[in-house]
């Protein structure tokens, strides 16, 4: 559906995007995550035609989006990270304004507006001024506005930032509805727990490059391998530490209370071998298991820049 290859964008001397690749499947709810300044908003602006890249290719449904930006506007709906509303217009007028911007007028526009306002739960607010709406309602109005022309792809930049938990929940439910309608949705957010609940695909961007991308299941499997190994030592901690420091698969060692946390790069067979090695050395263990991973832990792991090599950190 959306394919980005080698996208580069410089702001002065700083590279916002440094050869970003991205692949969004048709009907996917794609979570686009990364730390601040990673290049998410720049990518979204290029996708929506609000910015030109310095290099790279963007294809939407196999068509070159950079060569024909006018042809792409009907395919894309955009929800920015701000409300972007005219306070002195009524809700219905706001919807009709954007309907007319897409060439929809008269009864068709009114019907479509009412349908969408009903979908986002604002059908009883049509005669209200936008100024009088709450933050959450404004954001839902923005979502309805982005869907007015029935786009194939909906691109949302931090849509739930600044919303209270209740409104975030409602927003999430609307996104689930969109997924059922088989719309392709690209959503950038910092709320990783939410993304992992609703997204089918994830792309993690860091310093203008895609560092991890795939389906949710694929990513979660990777997380399980990359999660820290927790070893609870009953007796012989110093002996255990000596073994761990010299082990080829141990990257970092952290002592947390009575437990030892390891960044262990080996697979399950290597884990078994390490356990055997510790037991053979006479270390008495009462726990040995991988921490349960989630999207947040893999995000932290990928985006944190710890010094390489074996370090010993005491956390008390």
């Amino acid at each position: 559906m959306v394919t980005i290859n080698g996208l580069k964008k410089m702001y002065g001397r700083a590279a916002a995007l440094d050869g970003l690749d991205m692949h969004v499947r048709e009907g996917a709810l794609y979570g686009f995550v990364g730390p601040n300044g990673a290049g998410k908003t720049t990518t979204i602006k290029i996708l929506t035609g609000l910015l030109l890249p310095d290099e790279g290719k963007v294809e939407i449904q196999g068509e070159d989006a950079l060569a024909d930006p006018a042809g792409m506007v009907d395919k894309i709906g955009y929800v920015p990270d701000f409300f972007g509303v005219y306070d002195n217009l009524k809700v219905s007028e706001y919807m009709e304004l954007f309907a007319s911007c897409y060439g929809l007028t008269g009864l068709t526009a009114r019907k479509r507006s009412m349908e969408l306002l009903g979908q986002v739960g604002l059908d009883e607010k049509t005669d209200y001024y936008v100024d009088g709406l709450s933050r959450g309602m404004k954001q839902r109005l923005c979502l309805a506005r982005a869907l007015i022309h029935d786009p194939l792809i909906l691109i949302m930049d931090e849509p739930t930032s600044g919303l209270d938990p209740r409104t975030r929940y409602e927003f999430k439910e609307i996104l689930k509805d969109l997924r059922e309608q088989e719309k392709t949705v690209v959503i950038s957010s910092h709320l990783l727990s939410e993304l992992s609940e609703i997204c089918t695909d994830i792309g993690i961007v860091e310093q203008g490059r895609m560092v991890l991308e795939g389906t949710m299941n694929h990513i979660l499997n990777q997380i399980n391998v990359q999660s820290p190994l927790r070893i609870s030592v009953y007796q012989g901690r110093d002996q255990a530490l000596n073994i761990l420091r010299s082990h080829p698969y141990v990257e970092t060692v952290t002592i947390r209370h009575n437990d030892i946390m390891l960044n262990f790069t080996g697979d399950r067979e290597d884990e078994a071998a390490l356990l055997q090695q510790l037991m053979d050395a006479g270390v008495r263990l009462c726990g040995f298991m991988r921490e349960r991973g989630n999207l947040e832990s893999v995000f932290i792991q990928i985006t944190s820049h710890e010094e390489e090599g074996r370090v010993l950190i005491h956390e008390n």
Partner: peptide, 14 residues
């Protein structure tokens, strides 16, 4: 200032 210019530019409006 209202941040509506980008919204207009993502429509068919030139």
């Amino acid at each position: 200032e209202r941040q509506t210019l980008n919204l207009l530019l993502t429509t068919r409006m030139t």
